[in-house]
């Protein structure tokens, strides 16, 4: 009878150990590792301005050079361009920004081929919007798109020096 108690105790301990072992061996744990790589974007714009020269009313003039936008080698994502602009203002008058049209093209487009107007609100490049042969909605790393501008002077505007500021926004494509 004296031997029963230690024997049963030993069996219970053995059983509990088995339970514990079974619990550990049957459980599958997974650890998720997440590594976020920082987003680098560097964009070069050159030249820093466009001068259309002296224009006549109702004239439709294309810039003599393109504005080259480069997603530099310091970037690690492709980028999408979004453009917006302020109205052209002089000391006494204003010309709506929609009279400025833009096209992404390797060569100077014909004046009649400009379709998309600039707006005060942000307007994103797509595969069709602002696409004159180049897609400014996906500018690869270390590559350049050439942006050409065409300006129409509406009738009834006073003589003067007009200027506008165009903002080029670059968003990483992830």
């Amino acid at each position: 009878m004296n031997m029963k108690i230690p024997a049963v105790f030993g069996m219970v301990v053995l059983g509990l150990s088995g339970l514990l072992f079974a619990q550990y061996t049957s459980q599958t744990d997974s650890v998720t590792f997440v590594a976020e790589v920082a987003q680098f974007i560097e964009v070069q714009v050159t030249p820093p301005s466009i001068n259309f020269g002296t224009l006549n009313p109702l004239a439709n003039t294309t810039s003599t050079t393109s504005v080259d936008v480069t997603n530099t080698a310091n970037s690690n994502v492709d980028i999408k361009l979004t453009l917006s602009g302020s109205n052209f203002t002089s000391a006494t008058d204003e010309i709506d920004i929609t009279n400025l049209r833009m096209s992404a093209s390797a060569a100077a487009p014909a004046a009649g081929s400009f379709i998309e107007s600039m707006t005060n609100a942000e307007k994103a490049c797509t595969s069709t919007v602002f696409n004159g042969g180049q897609d400014c909605s996906d500018v690869l790393i270390d590559s350049t798109v050439n942006l050409w501008f065409n300006f129409f002077v509406p009738g009834g505007k006073k003589a003067g020096t007009y200027s506008s500021t165009i903002n080029i926004k670059s968003d990483g494509i992830i």
């Binding site: 974007i41 964009v43 714009v45 820093p48 301005s49 466009i50 001068n51 259309f52 504005v67 602009g85 052209f88 400025l100 501008f149 300006f151 007009y162 200027s163 506008s164 500021t165 165009i166 903002n167 080029i168 926004k169 670059s170 968003d171």
Partner: peptide, 11 residues
């Protein structure tokens, strides 16, 4: 810079 159209950049 001086000209009819100036540029800024944003992100």
């Amino acid at each position: 810079s001086a000209g009819a159209v100036l540029f800024t950049q944003s992100r």
